[in-house]
Design a protein around this nucleic acid. Sequence first.
DNA 1: GCTATTATAGGGTCATAAAGTCTTTTATTG
DNA 2: CAATAAAAGACTTTATGACCCTATAATAGC
Lengths: 133, 133
Amino acid sequence: MKFSQATDYALHAMLYLVSEAPDKPVSVQLLAEKLGVSQTYLSKMLTKLVKAGLIQSVSGVNGGYRLRRNREDISFLDIIHAIEGTASLFECSFNHGSECLIQQVVIEAERQMEQYLQNKKISELAGQFKGIG
Amino acid sequence: MKFSQATDYALHAMLYLVSEAPDKPVSVQLLAEKLGVSQTYLSKMLTKLVKAGLIQSVSGVNGGYRLRRNREDISFLDIIHAIEGTASLFECSFNHGSECLIQQVVIEAERQMEQYLQNKKISELAGQFKGIG
DNA sequence: GCTATTATAGGGTCATAAAGTCTTTTATTG
DNA sequence: CAATAAAAGACTTTATGACCCTATAATAGC
């Protein structure tokens, strides 16, 4: 089990938006160039971030993507959930009655991780942001 | 990203060993029957648990698997690491200088989860164990 | 020492998901 | 209406998960 590369891209793209361009829309083209990844692939992740309500898209000339929410409100967990989905990391495959004790433990562990990621805002890193390369 | 089903099986197999058979070796055949999974598949996980030093294998007649370590010492994390490996869940794919700030955050989050899983021993559930089915 | 039993190792298969490309459609500005 | 930009969908390729099957090695009991 691993976080997908897509999540990695999305986190870096969001860090760029929060750090460098809080207001003006940034095109996929520019973002993809900054990150060194393909436009078409990156645009899929950006579309997910739009659907999650984290960023806003503006089509047409001078369009692109810009933050929708207050930049202080956007957590790591928001971004990760937008890309990876919100399903639990563990699902017991046996059907022993109602609740699996093992599952309860692992899900609580997962909750610990998510709590940390929810309290950590992407904007906290903006000050130290030195660009991607 | 998800925990593999193999981890699910391994956790349940270990819970069985800790609860029902701390000393006597249990064959894959019996274990697989109890869990309702195939012998050949389950045996791969058990072999991993042996290599991780959690259980001991005894081949030949009346052989099988039994705990190696003190049952109070075996944590959820031990079992998960044995099956999933110990590699980090997140690896930044960009090469910005030495350290990626994003990666540091996610790895710390992962550490939170692992700390919980390390403190949680499988033997804690043994008392409440009512069998698999 | 032979046989039955049991783990170990390795390869093969099938399905699903991740990673990435390409093309078409839709929306917007000037 | 022309240029720009996002959104959507189909497609390929590669990797991983979830299995099965067979052969080999070790051991206990006779």
